[in-house]
């Protein structure tokens, strides 16, 4: 710390607070506040999870998983949304995984420190801070409107591409960290044996970075399937009575379906919204568990 702060304080003027008991009392209050804040955060999480469990567990059954949306809450189900989300996940993974990993390999392994690399780096930092709904507007203008002949308008492909762009910065950052964690001695050993850069990357660097990369990709995917706003912006509709059968089908997704049910006035729809949330949270939990499994394996092998 700088010395400028001291003249304004009591220390320099000799009014040092010697009331040690009082200072210790303040200490206790402060520690209690810090613990209190942490406990409050945990309690809120517990409150959130408990409310949803209690609201939704009653209407969660196989019938709910296997039915299409309906105007009658007791008949409505989440099948269309579940399949929509699975389709979205495959499309997002198919695009964002190769592009994100390729971009990260370029930045970390191939490029020199030139203007292009620096531009991409600054750019990725900024893209990560752009609100998700803005990506939705981009998807609406580009994928739904301009590329309509390819994507089929408000289709599952448009949704997947929008979400892929959204999580690209996350995947690039995670992949770069995983690549950076690979010891340089592995690269040097490869070069010493006469391998060129790509051979070293594809045979040695990528395999040993793969658990870390997969962790990042799965976490990014779990973020993508929880996103609602960009999908609403590109015009995904909640009332669809079929599962997608091609990339150009119209679609719905779990968060959209949940949003639609929460927004209705009848309490019965709120219960099935909670059931939908339980299904969504279980999916996210599974994905996180897989990511944590990869992370732990990664840390053990190093």
């Amino acid at each position: 710390m700088t010395a400028e702060g001291i003249p304004g304080k009591n220390v320099a003027t000799g009014k040092f607070d010697q009331n040690l008991a009082g200072r210790y009392r303040m200490d206790k209050i402060f520690a209690a506040a810090a613990w209190g804040a942490t406990i409050v955060a945990v309690l809120i999480l517990a409150w959130l999870l408990l409310t949803i469990l209690m609201d939704g567990i009653g209407t969660l059954n196989l019938n709910f998983l296997d039915s299409f949306p309906s105007r009658k809450p007791e008949r409505a189900g989440i099948k269309a949304a579940l399949f929509g989300t699975l389709w979205l996940m495959c499309i997002v993974a198919a695009f964002s995984f190769p592009i994100g990993v390729g971009a990260a390999i370029y930045l970390e392994e191939f490029s020199d420190d030139n203007w292009f690399t620096r531009l991409v780096e600054i750019n990725i930092g900024n893209l990560a801070g752009v609100p998700s709904i803005i990506y939705g507007l981009l998807g609406l203008a580009v994928f739904v409107r301009i590329l309509e002949p390819i994507t089929g308008g408000r289709s599952v492909l448009s949704g997947g591409l929008t979400l892929a762009l959204l999580i690209l910065p996350v995947i690039i950052v995670a992949t770069r960290e995983a690549l950076r964690a690979v010891p340089n001695s592995i690269r040097l050993a490869g070069f010493a044996l006469g391998a060129n850069k790509w051979q070293v990357i594809s045979h040695h660097v990528l395999p040993s970075a793969m658990p870390g990369i997969l962790t990042g990709v799965i976490l990014a995917l779990s973020r993508a399937i929880g996103e609602t706003a960009p999908l609403i912006a590109i015009g995904a509709v909640a009332f669809i009575r079929s599962t997608p059968d091609s990339l150009q089908s119209s679609f719905t997704a779990m968060p959209i379906q949940i949003y639609n049910w929460v927004g209705r006035p009848q309490a019965d729809f709120h219960h099935i919204a909670a059931s939908g949330i339980i299904v969504l949270m279980i999916m996210l939990l599974l994905m996180n568990a897989i990511a944590i499994y990869f992370r732990n394996r990664f840390q053990q092998t190093r």
Partner: peptide, 27 residues
């Protein structure tokens, strides 16, 4: 092969710039 891979990876890195251009352009 290395050159081709390098160009492809560079193009993928450029997609992030295209995204920004797309966002700012449409807006």
């Amino acid at each position: 092969i290395e050159l081709i891979i390098k160009v492809i990876c560079g193009a993928f890195a450029a997609i992030s710039i295209l995204t920004t251009i797309g966002i700012i352009g449409t807006l």
